[in-house]
Structure formats: structure tokens, C-alpha cells
């Protein structure tokens, strides 16, 4: 445990002069009025049958200032374990992640399977910082569905650091509505061959909200498949940030990795910043990245209106269809519908 005054904590926060945070100036977004800067928050965990949880020490997987601060302020790291071969029925639900620092470690043992639902939402003017470490053992599977929906004056950083052994599967779907500042960061370390990862997400922002979806994937084994598609919708004076990096190491032959970020700007006062990156050291791989930023197609809007669909409804239908693509591959119908319902509510 560390003890610091709020202003001292803020002075340690990343800021715009740091390359990885240049579009997400955490230090400038937080004030001493934000509650939770110097305290821990205890996550509320709804454990499905067969999944255990105990307080323990933090594992040394995550690096960076924010996970380090989370570990420093949180008295314990919550260790969650899925035993070998267990196909867990029902999701592990994680919420109450607002107003402080939280630290968790999830281990999915060999051949086991787990679904997680994370809800990052809370009251006004909270500062929240989560450090989640995950270890996927050989042949295991994790589906992580993340919903972030904070008030417009809340600040949140959620960092997940996932180590994946060979033939494990990660499916991740994020939906963010931003806050004064929200950064959802995923760092995936593929340590074996044949790993399959899907890292999709969407952000929908209005007012002066800010979301940063940052992903960093290191691929060290051969025959890995990575798919990342992030969709952004921004209006008013909001700001969306996407940073993606695939680091394909020399041994990672036959990697098939594709990254996309597509953003819709619904007004001309918004801002979208994107940095898709590939760093490849293997010579027999198929890697691609793409980034588009645009507006709704006026020709399509006219076509819809010509059929009698009012302009506002036409715009919301097109926007929903655009966002929904990020969740196309989510094969849990209830989770998918839940995400789409939130999108529809935002558009209404």
C-alpha cells in the first residue's frame, strides 16, 4: 500500500507529452475534486459455479504507470481461477469498479472456458483505475464483454494485460460511451502458437466526452490469428482516440492479423485521432491495417428518405448498422442484443 496526497498522485499521471498518451491527457483531465484518487475500490464479483476467488498478491504481468498505481493503492489483488477443463456456465459479472483503484487477476486453466461481463459505470466525478491481469493457459477460451458508461465528468482508466498460451482463444467486445476521459487499454501477449484473438469494440460519444481505445498485441508464436475492428461514432465536441499496434516477432510465422478502425463524424466540431501500427519481423505473414474517418453517406440518406423514412430515423438506422458490425461475430445472442440495445438507446 502506498500513501499519497491527491495532488501527488495526479503528478504521476501520464500526460500529452508522453507518446502513448499524447491524445489522452490524463493529468490535465483529473482534479483533486475527483473521488477515488487515493483509495481502493472492491470489485463486486458474481461468480458462476466452479469459479473461485480469493484475495492475494498482484502478479507481475502489467507494466506502466496506471497498473502500478492500481497495485499500489489496492490492498489486495483479487485472484479468480477457472480450473482445468471447466466450461463455465453463465458469465462472471464484474462491476462496482468506480471511485478508486482495483486490481484483479484471472487465470483460466488448461482447456477451460470463461465468459466475463465487465460494467464500468458509476456516479459523478469519480476517478477509477482498474488493473486486470489475465492468464489463458493452453487451449483455454475467454470471452470478455466490456461496457463503459460513465457520467460526463468521470475519469476512468481500465487496463487489461492478457497473456495467452498456445491454442488459446480470446474474444473481446467493448462498448464505450466515454466520460471526461476514458481509456480502455488491452495488451495481449501471444506466447504460443495457434492463438486466436478477436478484439472488437465501439465508442459512441457526444457532448465533450472522450474515449481512448488502445490495443497492443505482441505475437511471438506461429499460426496466430488476430482480428481487431473498432468503430467510432462522435458528435458535438467529443473526441475519439484509437491506437492499435501489432508487433509480430520473428518466430511468429504464418500470422494472420488484421486491424481496422472506422469512425463516423456526425458533426464538424468533433475530433478523431487514430494510430494503427504494424511492426513485423517475420517474413511469411499476412498483416493489414486500415483506418477510415468519414460522415454518413448523403446519397444513402436521400434514398432512405425517398422511401418515407424520416431523416433522424434514417441517420440512426445507418449509424446503428455501422456500429453493429463490431459485434457481428459475438455468438452469444443475449450479450449481443444487450450491447445493441445500449447503442439504440444512445441513438434514440
Amino acid at each position: 500500500m502506498i500513501h499519497m496526497q491527491p495532488d501527488a498522485v495526479i503528478s504521476h499521471f501520464p500526460h500529452k507529452r508522453m507518446e502513448a498518451w499524447k491524445w489522452t491527457d490524463l493529468r490535465m483531465s483529473v482534479s483533486e475534486e475527483h473521488m477515488g484518487l487515493t483509495r481502493a475500490v472492491t470489485p463486486r464479483l458474481t461468480l458462476p459455479d466452479g469459479v473461485s476467488c480469493s484475495p492475494g498478491n498482484r502478479h507481475h504481468g502489467s507494466s506502466g504507470v496506471m497498473p502500478t498505481l492500481a497495485a499500489g493503492f489496492a490492498p489486495v489483488c483479487w485472484n479468480i481461477r477457472v480450473p482445468t477443463g471447466l466450461n463455465v456456465q453463465g458469465p462472471l459479472r464484474i462491476d462496482n469498479l468506480s471511485g478508486g483503484h482495483a486490481c484483479m487477476f484471472i487465470r483460466v486453466d488448461k482447456g477451460a472456458s470463461l465468459d466475463i461481463e465487465e460494467y464500468h459505470q458509476g456516479p459523478d466525478r469519480r476517478f477509477s483505475n482498474m488493473d486486470l491481469q489475465v492468464h489463458l493457459a493452453e487451449g483455454s477460451r475467454l470471452r470478455r464483454v466490456v461496457v463503459q458508461n460513465d457520467p460526463g465528468n468521470a475519469v476512468r482508466v481500465a487496463t487489461a494485460c492478457i497473456a495467452a498460451e498456445k491454442h488459446s482463444i480470446l474474444e473481446q467486445y467493448m462498448l464505450s460511451f466515454g466520460g471526461a476521459l476514458s481509456r480502455l487499454e488491452t495488451r495481449l501477449y501471444s506466447e504460443g502458437e495457434g492463438i486466436e484473438a478477436t478484439m472488437n469494440g465501439a465508442y459512441l460519444l457526444d457532448g465533450r466526452r472522450h474515449t481512448d481505445m488502445t490495443g497492443h498485441v505482441e505475437i511471438a508464436g506461429s499460426h496466430c490469428t488476430v482480428r481487431q475492428s473498432v468503430k467510432g461514432v462522435v458528435t458535438d465536441k467529443s473526441r475519439g482516440v484509437f491506437q492499435g499496434k501489432f508487433h509480430v516477432k520473428q518466430a511468429a510465422q504464418h500470422t494472420d492479423a488484421r486491424m481496422r478502425h472506422d469512425a463516423l463524424m456526425l458533426s464538424d466540431t468533433t475530433e478523431v485521432r487514430a494510430r494503427p501500427e504494424l511492426e513485423i519481423y517475420a517474413d511469411d505473414v499476412a498483416c493489414a491495417h486500415g483506418n477510415t474517418i468519414g460522415a454518413l453517406d448523403e446519397n444513402v440518406l436521400f434514398y432512405m428518405r425517398q422511401r418515407g423514412i424520416p431523416q433522424a430515423r434514417s441517420r440512426s438506422m445507418l449509424t446503428e448498422a455501422f456500429v453493429a458490425e463490431a459485434f457481428d461475430d459475438l455468438d452469444d445472442a443475449a450479450s449481443k442484443q444487450s450491447l445493441l440495445t445500449r447503442v439504440q438507446e444512445w441513438l434514440a
Binding site: 446519397n299 444513402v300 422511401r307 418515407g308 423514412i309 438506422m317
Partner: peptide, 18 residues
């Protein structure tokens, strides 16, 4: 025009009912 992500029947029912 092509409208990705909007099923034909959904589009038409929306238009007719509108």
C-alpha cells in the same frame, strides 16, 4: 443504393410503417 448492415425486410418494414 446499397445499405450495408440494414436487412432488406427491416428497411422496407420501417419505410412502409413510417
Amino acid at each position: 443504393l446499397e445499405i450495408p448492415g440494414v436487412p432488406t425486410l427491416t428497411f422496407l418494414r420501417t419505410a412502409l410503417n413510417a
